[in-house]
Design a protein around this nucleic acid. Structure first.
Length: 103
DNA sequence: GTGATGACGGAAA
DNA sequence: CTTTCCGCCATCA
């Protein structure tokens, strides 16, 4: 088991902070939490262990889920539009910062 | 200082 | 449309 990363760093806090900022019914991509290091964002969420962090609202940039059905169920409960099988988020509609109409 | 890993992203086939 | 491969950045041993 790799030891938990240091969540005290500013970078890690920034990631967790943005994750908490995502409102229910919307989702965000790892690249949104940290555009320069999406992998790092995932590592932090996995190690955060903080129930105040809505990790289930964080999906891949293409809308695919990282935690399978566990995540899909939570998102569906918030009214997030899921589609296909395996279920993936309709990012076009649920992405947090992107409420703009793609036209 | 070097090597290896990861809840990823984007491009190519 | 799905699947595969490479590349990125930060952190850990």
């Amino acid at each position: 088991m790799r030891r938990p990363p240091d969540l005290t760093t500013d970078r890690a806090r920034a990631v967790l902070g943005r994750a908490r900022a995502v409102p229910a019914g919307h989702v965000a991509a790892y690249s949104d939490l940290d555009p320069a290091a999406p992998r790092f964002a995932g590592t932090i969420l996995s190690a955060s262990g903080d129930p105040s962090v809505p990790w289930h609202r964080i999906v891949r940039s293409d809308g695919s889920l990282t935690q399978g059905e566990r995540q899909a169920k939570l998102l569906a409960a918030e009214g997030v539009a899921l589609t296909g099988d395996p279920p993936r988020v309709d990012v076009r509609l649920a992405r947090w910062w992107s409420d703009v109409d793609p036209a």
